[in-house]
Design a protein around this nucleic acid. Structure first.
Length: 391
RNA sequence: GGAGGUGUGGCCGAGUGGACAAUGGCAGCAGACUGUAAAUCUGCCGGGCUUCGCCCUACCGAGGUUCGAAUCCUCGCGCCUCCA
């Protein structure tokens, strides 16, 4: 097995672990920022690392379309190409089966996409997807799956799982045990027996890790949580578990408490670009008029480069003006918030205090920030102009 | 002085007899975003109300024609262009 996973501590079902990959160690539970095209939008690899990220996601479908897997191979692999030196996990394109629903057809053998860029056809098979990820030299490859939509009839969900399971077997057989690892993906929509069966089916195939897919596709939060509660404990305990596409901090906390180790979500990055910031005081919609003359930092308890010397008023101004710096600063902040959140969860599990701190941690991103009295002196200004952004 | 043009909701700008409280865009107010076709999308945006509807005031101003005018006519005012 090319990835090693150690469980360092446990707290109820929650685990504090360490996943060792060819390009570095991932302390879990971990949040993996999404860099679909090879970069988290607006963020350099150095900034990503400085924010505390230990692993980055990228996407096979998007990279296969542009610049192409062969080109990435000729350029020395995905790490060399992107400049991100830490672990990389690539998603297989299974999510695009759902998100690009109008641009693909699925058959027993695989998926045929019509490029969203120019309409040209692109064929994905379980074997081809494994091979492409191996050629890019990623640390964690994901099997090709069919991400079911929501809602979906039970019979359709079951048929879909039969197909995805067949793909899982083919992917497993095609994986040549390169330096990285291959993860299986459980589907089964919102049907408990299907979910549990999917977990058991995959476990037999002995993947390097197991993902829960088919969530974050529009289902209500209680449905999503139920899926986690059925599936996560049913997956092999000695391998990392990955909840795909989730989510808000409260959902991550819930999943961690049920034994999930890895997460990814576009939310912190996309919301940042849309001027929505996560803070320990609640959610801030930075374009709102109430921040026009708010001199406070975004989040006084945050150590990110934006909070170090950017007032809400200035960030508001940058967003209003369409200044590129705005989404960049906001993304650096939101990423740092998520990554700090995960660090706090890891610490809590290590102390056996997850349940105790759960409420306190969960309230961070809920609700609107309280108005508060603007305190003109509240923005800390460093006396050392070179201190900022240095990592 | 003469000729022609033009004046529309915070701004720009469609509309040239009824389907107009008036297309669009911007600005403004708010909301959504979950393995990224997303620096995107949605709602509101004259005033009031019991806001899937009703009432009032509205397209420079004042008159007029008409069943009916942002749209036609007259006068006035402002602005633009050309000629002297």
């Amino acid at each position: 097995m090319s990835l090693t996973f150690e469980i360092l501590a446990a707290d109820g079902l929650a685990r504090r672990g360490r996943l060792t990959t060819p390009h570095g160690v991932i302390e879990t539970p971990a949040f993996m920022p999404v860099g679909t095209l090879g970069a988290v939008k607006g963020v350099t690899p150095q900034e990503l690392a400085a924010a505390g990220a230990s692993v980055m996601l990228a996407n096979l479908y998007h990279l296969a379309l542009r610049p192409g897997i062969d080109a990435i191979g000729r350029l020395g692999g995905l790490h060399r190409f992107t400049g991100w030196t830490g672990p990389i996990l690539t998603d297989s394109g299974g999510f695009q089966v759902w998100s690009l629903g109008g641009l693909r057809t699925v058959d027993a053998g695989g998926v045929t996409f019509r490029s969203h860029l120019d309409g040209s056809p692109l064929r994905f098979t379980p074997e081809g997807v494994v091979d492409a990820q191996a050629r890019m030299g990623v640390d964690i490859a994901m099997m090709l799956d069919e991400c079911t939509s929501w809602p979906v009839e039970r019979a359709a969900a079951e048929a879909s799982w039969e197909r995805t399971l067949a793909w899982a077997r083919r992917a497993r057989a095609a994986w040549n045990g390169g330096p990285g690892g291959l993860f299986g993906i459980a589907q089964g929509s919102v049907y408990p027996d299907l979910r549990q069966r999917a977990a058991a089916d995959l476990a037999e195939l002995e993947f390097d890790g197991y993902a829960i897919g088919g969530v974050s596709v529009g289902e209500p939060s209680p449905e999503r949580r139920a899926v986690v509660e059925w599936t996560a404990p049913a997956l092999p305990a000695d391998r990392p578990r990955y909840l795909m596409g989730v989510g808000y901090p409260e959902d991550i906390l819930h999943a961690v408490a049920h034994g999930v180790d890895l997460f990814d979500c576009v939310l912190p990055a996309r919301n940042a670009r849309h001027a929505v910031l996560f803070t320990r005081q609640g959610v801030l919609r930075m374009k709102n008029a109430k921040y026009r003359e708010d001199p406070r930092p975004i989040d006084p308890e945050c150590g990110c480069p934006a909070c170090a010397r950017t007032s809400r008023a200035f960030l508001h101004h940058l967003f209003r003006s369409g200044e590129l710096t705005a989404p960049v600063l906001a993304t650096l902040h939101n990423l740092r918030f998520y990554l700090d959140f995960m660090a706090d969860l890891r610490q809590a599990i290590g102390l056996g205090a997850l349940t105790d701190t759960a409420e306190q941690l969960a309230t961070r991103s809920t609700g609107e920030d309280p108005p508060g009295e603007p305190d003109p002196g509240s923005l800390p200004v460093s006396s050392d102009p070179l201190e900022q952004r240095s990592s």
